[in-house]
Amino acid sequence: MSPSVTVRAPGKINLQLAVGPLGADGYHPLATVFQAVDLYETVRATVRDDDEIRVTVEAPRTLGIDTAAVPTDASNLAVKAAYALRAAYGMDLGVDLHIVKGVPVAGGMAGGSADAAAALVACAEAWGMAVSRQELDTIAASLGADVPFSLHGHTAVGLGRGSDLSPAMSRGEFHWTLATQRAGLSTPAVYGRFDEQVADGAPVEADPQISQELMAALMSGDPHRVGAALSNDLQAAALDLAPHLSRVMDAAREAEALGVMVSGSGPTVAALGRSRQHALAIAAHISAADVADSVLTASGPAPGATIVN
């Protein structure tokens, strides 16, 4: 067994998030296009002499990430991943998990899911398990809809609950400005407001479909076409719960972003630039407008969970 293994996994942006009506099973059918970006969660797994699974969390001060909002008990997704992996293979080994956060907390960018994906790979390696990515996929899907994507990264289509993945053809590199807020948005609350809007007559597709316009734009590698094709059915609900996000979107448009949207369930706002330099210029404009607590830039697509030592 390796005594200590470090793995990093990426955050994500939903380039499209099409949401169907709430089903009898309590879930919404989804059609989504994920893109992984080069903001990473890093998880170090160190084998323990006992059967305890413990977690600690830190973040670079420069990122302005509030680690106090990250649980360090059994509700932490990385801890859940370690327990799930151990249970699936009848093991009783322990591990210390140390997370270095690089993805905004509660920002709709799947930082917790990235922690889970990284923990699965790190624990499997540290515990000396000969486990394939396909086998990890099954465990990942049981932990949350975004976890399988964090394992694989790049650009992918997600159907069903979002965990039925297939790779998406994409050319080139895309450069994003990400405006974050200290106060997160609860994903269940955003979906709940979406359901209320549907009950009040907002249109909804019973069987949401992937945008062919977006898929063609990704294959072309043209950021102008991708920006014009971005969509998020949860955006109206997120803006209703957090109206100040509209000011962030306005600031990004003033900086001539090619496309602007709330990422996932929010509150992170993602703006697509023409180039890396343009993304930096958008970030500077949003920062000057003083409408976000932190502004980052990132590029995608990025690889999935990767062992780094």
Rank of each mutant, 00 (worst) to 15 (best):
A119M: 03
V262W: 05
R133K: 08
E256N: 13
D38A: 05
V226M: 11
P10A: 07
L178W: 04
D51G: 04
D164E: 15
E256W: 12
V157C: 04
L230I: 10
Q277R: 13
G273W: 14
A140Y: 00
A206F: 12
R276E: 07
G304P: 01
A31P: 07
T180I: 08
G221I: 04
A118L: 00
P29N: 13
G153Y: 01
M249I: 12
A236Y: 05
T56F: 08
E52D: 08
Q235C: 13
A114D: 02
G90E: 13
I210E: 07
V295M: 13
R182K: 15
D222Y: 07
A255R: 03
G90M: 10
A18T: 07
G162R: 10
A156I: 00
S265Q: 04
T187Q: 14
R225D: 08
L63I: 01
A242D: 14
L165Q: 04
D50C: 11
E254H: 13
V157H: 01
G94E: 14
D92S: 15
A242Q: 13
Q277N: 12
A179T: 01
A289M: 07
T268Y: 08
G172M: 02
A271I: 04
T155A: 12
R44W: 06
G64Q: 14
G108P: 02
I99R: 02
S275G: 09
A271C: 15
D195A: 06
G162P: 07
A202G: 04
S4H: 09
S163D: 15
G107Q: 13
P104K: 13
A126L: 06
G11W: 01
G20L: 11
L185D: 04
S220V: 09
L218Y: 03
V291C: 06
Y191P: 00
L234T: 02
A284G: 06
M91G: 14
P71T: 05
A228F: 12
S142C: 14
A68G: 07
Y27A: 05
A305G: 01
V55G: 10
D50Q: 10
Y83M: 13
T306Y: 03
A140L: 05
I53V: 14
Q235H: 13
H175S: 08
D146Q: 14
L234D: 09
P188T: 05
I282D: 12
Q16G: 09
L296Q: 03
I99E: 04
A69V: 10
T46Q: 11
A236G: 09
G227D: 12
V79F: 02
S170A: 10
K12I: 00
T32K: 09
A255T: 05
G23L: 15
A279Y: 06
T268G: 08
V295A: 05
F174C: 03
L245I: 10
N232A: 15
Q134W: 12
V198D: 00
H154A: 10
P148S: 09
T42D: 02
H175D: 08
A110Q: 04
R247H: 06
V70Y: 01
G184Q: 09
N76L: 11
G266Y: 15
L241V: 03
A119F: 01
I286D: 05
S265K: 01
